[in-house]
Amino acid sequence: MVQITLTVNAEPVDAAFAPYKTLLEVLREDLNLCGTKHGCELGECGACAVLLDGQPVLSCLVLGVDCGGRTVTTVEGLASDGRLHPLQETFADLGAAQCGYCTPGFLVTAKALLDEHPRPTRDQIRDALSGNLCRCTGYQQIYEAVEAAIGQAGPKGPALRDTRTDASSVRRPGPFGPGTDQSR
């Protein structure tokens, strides 16, 4: 067994695990953080993305044994003070999570994007999320969710927001594009 101390979701954690395990396996099997998913374990889908020292990486290709002293953020660590991160709110509201399996990887990757570029363009969003495959959505509602979170994810953390659905924030899918009036 390997023993390391690392910071996971802003808390120091002691972990003991079999030496061959990847960060993905340590998180899911040894730290009971099953929010991080896996779709291939070979770096080919993006489902297992986590933030490692602030950068999105694929946890299936990170050696657990090499994570001592490092800082890991998973989907479980996005909410703070009992409030969801604005991206979590907009993903839930705007249909960015269908089956929800790729969602944790998209969320942490999008968080890193907003941390680095608080007002990304659509092209920057597409580029930043190009390493995350989603088979359900066609990505468009994901872009819209990221865009809707722009400006809410300040450096002070998530803005105050009721966790219940605010219907006014949900754009109606109108004829040929979101945000237009559906009635004709």
Binding site: V75, E76, L84, T103
Partner: peptide, 13 residues
């Protein structure tokens, strides 16, 4: 248009 009933569970892992 509404947040789906299982939306919160899906975005919190």
């Amino acid at each position: 248009p509404r947040r789906r009933v299982d939306g919160r569970a899906k975005v919190t892992g």
